[in-house]
Design a protein around this nucleic acid. Structure first.
Length: 551
RNA sequence: UGGGCUAUAGCCAAGCGGUAAGGCAACGGACUUUGACUCCGUCAUGCGUAGGUUCAAAUCCUGCUAGCCCAGCCA
């Protein structure tokens, strides 16, 4: 799906190319490897790679690994997998830690220019000296150390002669700036921590505010796209690039991050859901992580089309998750074979059908895509239909089975409900129906019409399967009963997972993990790669079909 | 009550001085062996608000209002 609707990032790049400011653009996707990617990251990935592809530029995948206590190779591997799965190939793979030597040199340069100093204040003291949103900060008593003393101290920091937190390196800018980011930001801290990439080579690590602009400049990134909360960092970003005398001058542009209804989109919260056992991992199908969406059965194409369509802007908004659902259905419509599955079975005996007989009926695999061919499905005297396709006392406009009513069985015959069998408690446990041989599917029968068509499965030839239907994991606040504001954990939906045991057509035996199907009248399902075994088929509901039916 | 940003339909979003694109949702109707799909139609005399400039303003100017972000040795 091609979408050329303009956005401000694309406009800026186009202008930069036309004006000759750049003749080649470079973007980057710079995740910190401290968690799994989610659909909000997908928006950033698609923007960065998409815009570079459009203008024949390049995109680097760069891990922003400047804080070893939070980062791990587990995450770098999952991030690479997710970016590739989304369909993108990075031009270069980099790590911020590749540049630690150069960053150290640039810090030295700042010190030599009198633009950085080693501070002995504690974290608490630095906070106090920083001032508040409305009051200016005040200078650290260590702010005016000599260049030589700073050089000596910084080297000692590097050599491990101080403990964590004992000293930091700060940029010397302006303690009274209305922009708090410019009040002598810390640019290096001491952390005696092993780094996943550099091991124990370093015990000082650069802060984001210092490292990120340097990373961009080193790579020759032209357009550094990030989210809105970094807007206040931009003056500092430019200050670092300029004063560190970088050859390239990358520009930072900020866009609004993706928010979706009925979900949470922060790594911290997602991690909490995983660690506190609300879900069975980062790839739980209810998670908005890329790996969760993948296991749920979403396709890269659907996610890409969705991100194209929602656009990129600087406004703060929350997209209705129905929009995502739409693009999933749209993508799977022609790709997924259609089949029948009964999630909550109700046995039907067709009393006038010969005992012991089985006939094999032809069924097209996707009427909207004839190339998918057809299959044969068994039909005999006993079948299962969906429990909710029968009502003893139906309301008006109920087209399904009820005593005396006739319906069509998809690909088979008309059947008429003659008798309702109940157990001692009065629950309906079986239906006795009769069929009309004349009405066979494909026979061209036009004698009479029925309003309802039901899906079904042969009781003696079908195979058992587990179905997992999902509701949003996190419910949005209900504005009607707005008592106290709830934390996101209080909004966890206890009914987000519904497991059902039903039956599918016999040819589903040879299905593979991640295969996708449309179960008639239910929706799209994915073969769960984690729980499916040879003897236990598990289908994850990707998205239901739309329905205008209401009781 | 410091600074930075944002405001176009229920939700996204184009629009850049010439008279409000598109998508999602919703609602009618047609078709239908999926209450699906598809198709057709409806959906902002209005662009947060009040003024101003102009022949002409969502677009320019001024004031106001509301919301979001910033006081990590996180990113």
């Amino acid at each position: 799906m091609e979408n050329n609707s303009p956005n401000f990032v694309r406009t800026i790049i186009k202008e930069d190319l036309e004006s000759g400011k750049h003749n080649h653009i470079i973007t980057r996707f710079p995740p910190e490897p401290n968690g799994y990617l989610h659909i909000g990251h997908a928006k950033a990935i698609i923007l960065n790679f998409g815009v570079a592809d459009e203008f024949n530029g390049e995109t680097n995948l760069r891990f922003d690994d400047t804080n070893p206590i939070k980062e791990d190779v587990e995450y770098v591997n999952s991030i690479k997998e997710d970016v590739e799965w989304l369909g993108y190939t990075w031009d270069n793979l980099f790590f911020a830690s590749d540049y630690f030597d150069e960053m150290y040199e640039r810090a030295l340069l700042l010190i030599k220019k009198g633009l950085a100093y080693v501070d002995d204040l504690s974290a608490d003291e630095i906070r106090e000296y920083r001032g508040t949103l409305t009051e200016p900060g005040k200078n650290s008593p260590y702010r005016d150390r000599s260049i030589n003393e700073n050089l000596d101290l910084f080297e000692k920091m590097r050599n491990g002669q101080f403990k964590n937190g004992e000293k930091v390196l700060r940029a010397k800018i302006d303690m009274s700036s209305p922009n708090i980011n410019l009040r002598d930001p810390v640019i290096y801290r001491i952390s005696h921590t092993e780094h996943h990439n550099t091991g124990d080579k370093w015990c000082i690590y650069p802060m984001y505010a210092f490292a990120h602009p340097l990373e961009d400049a080193i790579e020759g990134v032209t357009h550094s796209l990030c989210s809105l909360e970094f807007e206040d960092q931009r003056p500092l970003y430019d200050w670092i690039v300029k004063n560190c005398e970088m050859q390239h001058t990358p520009r930072q542009y900020e866009f609004g991050r993706l928010n979706l209804t009925n979900t949470v989109m922060s790594k911290r919260k997602l991690r909490q859901l995983v660690e506190e056992g609300y879900v069975d991992g980062w790839d739980d199908p209810r998670m908005p992580t890329i790996s969760g969406l993948r296991r749920r059965g979403y396709t890269p194409e659907a996610i890409r089309n969705f991100c194209q369509e929602i656009g990129v802007s600087k406004a703060y908004g929350t997209i209705d998750s129905q929009m995502l659902d739409h693009f999933v259905r749209e993508d799977l419509k022609l790709k997924a074979p259609r089949t029948m599955g009964v999630l909550k079975p109700l046995k039907v005996v067709i009393t006038n059908y010969p005992e012991g007989e089985v006939e094999w009926l032809e069924a097209e695999n996707n009427p909207e895509n004839p190339e998918m061919g057809s299959r044969l499905i068994p039909f005999s005297r006993e079948i299962y239909v969906e429990q909710e396709d029968f009502m003893e006392n139906p309301p008006k406009k109920y087209f399904r089975l009820f005593p005396g009513n006739e319906v069509r069985l998809k690909h088979a015959y008309f059947i008429k409900c003659e008798e309702v069998i109940k157990d001692e408690e009065g629950n309906v446990i079986e239906l006795h129906c009769t069929y009309d041989k004349e009405t066979k599917s494909g026979s061209g029968f036009t004698g009479r019409k029925v309003k309802g068509t039901l899906h079904w499965v042969d009781a003696n030839h079908s195979i058992p399967a587990e179905f997992r239907n999902y509701q949003p994991l996190i419910m949005d606040e209900n504005p009607t009963e707005e008592e106290e504001e709830k934390t996101f954990l209080e909004r966890v939906n206890p009914q987000s997972l519904e497991v059902m045991n039903g039956f599918v057509e016999p040819n589903m035996k040879q299905v593979n993990p991640q295969d996708k199907f449309q179960f008639f009248r239910h929706g799209y399902y994915n073969v769960d790669p984690k729980h499916t075994t040879k003897d236990n088929l598990v289908f994850n509901q990707i998205v239901s079909l739309k329905s205008s039916f209401k009781l």
